[in-house]
Amino acid sequence: MQIYFTFEPREDLRKPLVAEFPEVNFVFDVKLREEQLAKADIVFTYGEDLTAENIALANNLQWIFVASAGVEKIPAKAIAERGIFVSNVRGIHKKPMAESVLAHILALKRGLPFIYEQQKKGEWNKKTSLSELNGSTALVIGPGAIGAEIGRILQAFGVYTIGCNRSGQSVESMDETHMIADLHKHLPKADIVISMLPSTDETKYLLTYEHFESMKDTAIFMNFGRGNVVKETELVRALQNKLIGHAVLDVFEVEPLPNESELWKLDNVTISPHFSSHSSRYVERALEIFKPNLKKWVAGERNLENKIDLLRGY
């Protein structure tokens, strides 16, 4: 059995992996090479390097392990036609992303951008408005593993949490949960609205200008799921018209965000370059999911954690 990594993990992570599976031939590379892909039974990848053309060359390929929560960039049709098993690292991002979300919220509530700016100017200035996170209400759209972790931490700060998902079924760390179809009814309650939605046909452009009209004019809108949940033009218009207080964006319709985007020019936006999930422990945590699954695979089991339904996109 050959397992092909299309990137090269740190040596302190590679050595224990190889030692734990002596029966496996591991190949580590700095980028995808078709000659190695053609021999691989399993591919461990971030997903962005796979194309329909090179999937066609991978005659032995049975399992693709995607070291990313999103799988929208892999050639789903080509993979599904071959019946190749796909799984991902769903849940791996919950710790760093929850910390990123909390950091942005606290920064805005407690005036950190203002403080940093005054320090640069060398000015002792208290003329800004500060508020508290305690006692506020947060609405999480798409409260999966990451959203539940965000909810858990927010609750520790005395925040009331509302979740909106497809089913309306209760979710851990949400004080109440409703169907996304009823989102309009619950947006006016929220001081903070956090989108954690994946990119699917159902979620594309789900949020419209009318949704922002339903929010408080002091609300913080945060998109940490996928950029195409809302059209940039609609979001820009909402921000220009001050329908909400501030937006914190880690994801965008087009990435990197083009220089000509109107979002760069607005003073009520915080732009993060889609790295809220980054952490020095990222690959370590990915391997913590991969290794137990690999043990099952070697033993002939196919009931693996985080199996992906490519037709649904998650």
Rank of each mutant, 00 (worst) to 15 (best):
N125I: 13
G158I: 12
A76D: 01
L154R: 07
L139F: 11
Y46T: 03
N125W: 06
K77D: 15
A67W: 06
G158Y: 11
E34N: 06
V71Q: 10
F26H: 04
F65H: 14
M97S: 07
L106F: 07
G111S: 13
I146H: 01
R152M: 03
A156C: 06
D29C: 13
I84V: 14
I42V: 15
E35C: 02
A138F: 08
E53F: 15
I105G: 03
T137W: 09
G83K: 11
G147F: 08
A80F: 07
A80C: 02
A148E: 05
K126E: 08
F157V: 15
L61C: 10
E117G: 11
Q36E: 14
A98Q: 10
G142I: 10
A52Y: 01
E123I: 10
T45W: 00
I105H: 02
E81T: 04
D41K: 13
P22M: 02
I55N: 00
A40S: 12
G122F: 07
A69S: 12
V66M: 04
E35G: 02
I105V: 11
K95C: 00
A56V: 07
E53Q: 14
F21K: 00
L130Q: 00
V140I: 15
S100L: 11
V24N: 07
L57A: 06
Q36V: 12
E99L: 06
A56M: 04
A80N: 10
R90C: 00
M97P: 10
N59W: 05
N60A: 09
A138T: 09
D41Q: 15
Q36C: 13
L50C: 11
D49Y: 04
N125M: 12
A145T: 14
A58S: 12
F65P: 00
V24D: 13
A107P: 00
I146Q: 00
A58Q: 09
G151W: 03
D49P: 02
I42G: 06
I146D: 01
L57D: 07
I74Y: 05
A138L: 10
I79G: 05
L32H: 02
E81Y: 04
E123N: 08
I146G: 00
E34Y: 01
F114H: 12
G147S: 08
K39L: 15
R90Q: 00
H104F: 11
V30N: 01
A107E: 05
K77L: 12
S136E: 15
E20R: 01
I115K: 12
R82A: 05
L37C: 13
V30I: 13
E35F: 03
L130E: 03
A40Y: 09
E53V: 14
A76I: 02
L154H: 05
S68G: 12
A40E: 07
Y46D: 02
S136A: 09
I150G: 03
F114I: 06
S136P: 06
K94D: 02
E81W: 03
P75I: 13
A80D: 11
E34D: 04
R90T: 00
T51G: 02
L133A: 06
A40Q: 06
P75V: 10
F157P: 09
